[in-house]
């Protein structure tokens, strides 16, 4: 199992996110990437904060920041990739994998297929932000800023479109060990190709390993030494 880190990016800087709505500035992206390189983080996922108010200007500004970054760790990027023009800009970035969310929910499969041609099918990750309450899983649609029922998600198409699926627990976002494993029962996707994000702590990591998931992605708390990647690997026996 891989242990990665996720970074939320808004207005050209990295931010820490709590519960999917409270944001706290964290600072310069390059500084964070350097730290994660040093911690031997298995992979880094940079997600733009791309909700309904996102636009091309904000996208381009964030792309410029990422373009100037330099990291020796595997990098995934997502948030606001909605057109072929957006894809073309990503070619300038030091990223290997692309994360799609809105394109999946809006059925923009041709965009994802074009990305697979340009970057390889192994490079395609899809992300579903979820909320689990009263034994029900709801999925957040970033571009529409609303939740829908998980039964509306076409998992069969997802299975073919993407190499890996990121399940982002938005309620647990920024908190320790709160990831809802029960939600995985309603997500019809193979665990060996699933990445858990949001509410990842040492106990969640240990359980994720025993459940056979592909990876976990710890939020930016890994920047604090006590939550370092190396300690997490040691705790989980990796």
């Amino acid at each position: 199992m891989r242990i990665g880190a996720s970074i939320i990016m808004k207005n050209r800087v990295a931010v820490q996110s709590y519960g999917w709505n409270l944001l706290r500035p964290l600072g310069d992206l390059q500084f964070i990437l350097d730290s994660l390189d040093e911690y031997e983080c298995d992979e880094i996922t940079v997600l733009r904060y791309a909700r309904s108010e996102d636009d091309a200007q904000a996208y381009n500004a964030d792309i410029d920041v990422l373009e100037s970054c330099n990291t020796l760790s595997p990098l995934s990027f997502g948030g606001g990739i909605r057109s072929l023009k957006d894809l073309e800009k990503i070619r300038r970035l030091p990223v290997e994998r692309l994360v799609f969310s809105s394109a999946v929910f809006e059925g923009n499969y041709s965009l994802i297929e074009e990305a697979a041609t340009l970057f390889g099918h192994q490079a395609i990750q899809c992300l579903i932000p979820i909320s689990y309450n009263n034994d029900k899983v709801r999925v957040f649609i970033p571009s529409q800023n609303r939740f829908i029922g998980v039964e509306e998600i076409d998992f069969e198409s997802l299975h073919n479109l993407c190499n890996e699926l990121i399940v982002y627990d938005t309620d647990a976002d920024g908190f320790d060990n709160l990831f809802s494993f029960n939600a995985l029962q309603d997500i019809k996707f193979p665990l060996p190709r699933t990445i858990l994000m949001g509410g990842i702590g040492l106990d969640v990591i240990k359980r994720a390993k025993s459940e056979g998931v592909a990876a976990v992605s710890i939020d930016n708390r890994v920047l604090h030494k006590e939550y370092s990647i190396l300690e997490a690997k040691k705790y989980a026996g990796l």
């Binding site: 020796l72 990098l75 300038r92 030091p94 990223v95 340009l118 490079a123």
Partner: peptide, 15 residues
């Protein structure tokens, strides 16, 4: 070749 990106490899070689 205009497929994927060469940025990471360039960064690596310059190290």
């Amino acid at each position: 070749l205009g497929i994927g990106n060469t940025r990471s490899v360039t960064n690596w070689l310059t190290k």
